[in-house]
Design a protein around this nucleic acid. Structure first.
Lengths: 148, 148
DNA sequence: CTTGATCCTCCACCGACTAGAGGATGCAGA
DNA sequence: TCTGCATCCTCTAGTCGGTGGAGGATCAAG
């Protein structure tokens, strides 16, 4: 197929040039062929592989998970139990995150509901932050896996 | 009140010692008094301030936003318009994130629904990732503000 | 007096990129 | 052919919100 310079690949896949080089550096993309002047050249296969990576990242899969998924994609004869397991885990992580954000949302709504126009001394937002006891207390984020 | 060493403050607030020092280094917590042997000593005021910070972080506020909120909390005579604005923005960001994750969830459910036991060649997960056309195509994360 | 917990500073690392410096090359128009 | 700009190269450092460890000092209890 037609050989693509990195900029063309970037436009075709809507992935930044620097990100493509980054994916190569961490081994998600193989080292491509180079021109006589050391420029990277890609082909249709690279477009597909990068598309796969992009799609997986959009779904929030971590790079290490994507590495495993690509391995399977590269070896279609293997059993795919692990692909399903990875996706299930990701689904669980997304569900957890949604639940967590739902709880956050609730408190933010409560905090902002009253509106506020006076001095900070009587501000519901500041007050809520000062006293955790005022809120439902079951939103406990900090340290989550999904960072989409 | 009783002077607390950093470890006590950490346990009282459930914030790690290293994180407390980090907050000091970025100016969220003031430099505390020190003992003759250079150990930090805190008081009840620090417990409250750190609680405020922790609560705000749990709600997903960025450090810069927390800095502004603490400013207001420190000066209760000022008008608190900005506190409300910050909280409203955070609420909007959380809403956006929830919507986005909802879309991700949909696709993950579709991908994993079939279950999978054969070779990767016929794996729905791998297949879905390879061909973005198979999915609804309106989940477009990458680059979000809320990272709770 | 010794032991183990706690404290100190400084520096490097995490994930997943992003941005910029400083320089080489490619390509199109005059 | 020359000029000039776009694109490419490598390398380094920064982002955010912390986390972890090395190497050493100090504290409190037995």
């Amino acid at each position: 197929m037609s050989p693509l310079p990195i900029g063309r690949l970037a436009k075709l896949t809507d992935v930044k040039v620097t990100t493509i080089r980054f994916y190569e550096s961490i081994g998600l993309l193989p080292e491509p062929l180079r021109t006589h002047s050391d420029r990277r050249i890609y082909d249709e296969g690279d477009v597909r592989r990068l598309g796969f990576i992009k799609h997986a990242r959009q779904l929030g899969f971590a790079v290490e998970a994507i590495r495993d998924l690509l391995e399977l994609s590269d070896h279609p004869e293997r059993v795919c139990d692990s692909a399903n397991a990875i996706a299930q885990e990701q689904l669980a992580a997304v569900d957890a995150k949604i639940a967590q954000l739902g709880a956050l949302r609730e408190e933010l709504v409560r905090m902002t509901a009253a509106g506020c126009s006076g001095p900070a001394a009587s501000c519901r937002v500041i007050e809520s932050l000062s006293d955790h006891g005022l809120c439902s207390a079951d939103h406990k984020p900090l340290a989550s896996q999904v960072s989409v």
